[in-house]
């Protein structure tokens, strides 16, 4: 029955080919370090799910942000879990992507023919940092507020473009409701879009080119 349905569907959307290409492709002998990329992807997925769940209750205004976060953490069933995983997942994500990157450098995996995979990887790392920076402000607690004051001011030091960048980041002179709203927008719309684009491209290249083998001593 299920085989029959599989055939029926395959005739129409051709999923078997995709399945074979993704899951049945041959992989050179690799070690455990090669799981770092997948692990990062897993955490990204987790962040996506918990992040979406958080937006159900979170309200991005200075009046309500803090209260809604407290509400999530203390009142909503499982709220502490969702927020805890999201918060720690952010750290895990940064840590894993950096480790993954170090592995790639060490094995020379960014070399021919995988240069573009590397470019997209760097893009993903920067997007991850962007997530970390924008997500930090959202709870609107002391740490969030003052770290963002400092963080945006640091950006403002850049020559010539610093001042406009600072204003654009803050949405004005000061850290305000405008800042919170745009950080929220960036965190849940802009960066996920960028991340998905880069991630799709990254994965496509990984599947198309295959992951690099562990280089031998002579290579």
């Amino acid at each position: 029955m299920s085989v029959g349905f599989g055939n029926w569907l395959d005739e129409r959307i051709g999923w078997r080919k995709v399945w074979d290409a993704i899951f049945l492709r041959k992989i050179p002998k690799v070690n455990w370090l090669y799981t770092l990329g997948s692990a990062t992807l897993f955490v990204a997925l987790l962040q996506g799910i918990t992040g979406i769940l958080l937006t159900i209750y979170y309200v991005p205004t200075p009046d309500h942000a803090y209260d809604s976060v407290v509400f999530i953490t203390t009142q909503v069933p499982g709220g502490w879990f969702i927020r805890g995983v999201h918060s720690w997942g952010a750290s895990a994500m940064v840590l894993l992507s950096v480790l993954h990157m170090v592995r790639v450098i060490m094995y020379g995996a960014y070399k021919y023919p995988r240069e573009v995979t590397w470019f997209t990887g760097v893009g993903l790392l920067l997007a991850t940092m962007g997530f970390g920076f924008t997500g930090y402000l959202l709870p609107w607690d002391q740490k969030a507020y003052w770290a963002t004051i400092v963080g945006t001011r640091i950006a403002g030091v850049a020559p010539f473009i610093g001042e406009p960048i600072l204003r654009i980041m803050r949405g004005g002179e000061d850290l305000s409701a405008v800042t919170l709203a745009r950080f929220f927008g960036t965190h849940v719309w802009v960066l996920p879009t960028i991340l998905l684009l880069f991630l799709g491209f990254h994965m496509y290249l990984v599947i198309r080119l295959g992951i690099s083998a562990v280089p031998g001593k002579e290579e």
């Binding site: 799910i49 769940l53 159900i56 909503v76 069933p77 499982g78 709220g79 879990f81 969702i82």
Partner: peptide, 8 residues
């Protein structure tokens, strides 16, 4: 937890 979170 996710379901509890949503419908809780």
């Amino acid at each position: 937890p996710a379901v509890a979170y949503v419908i809780g």
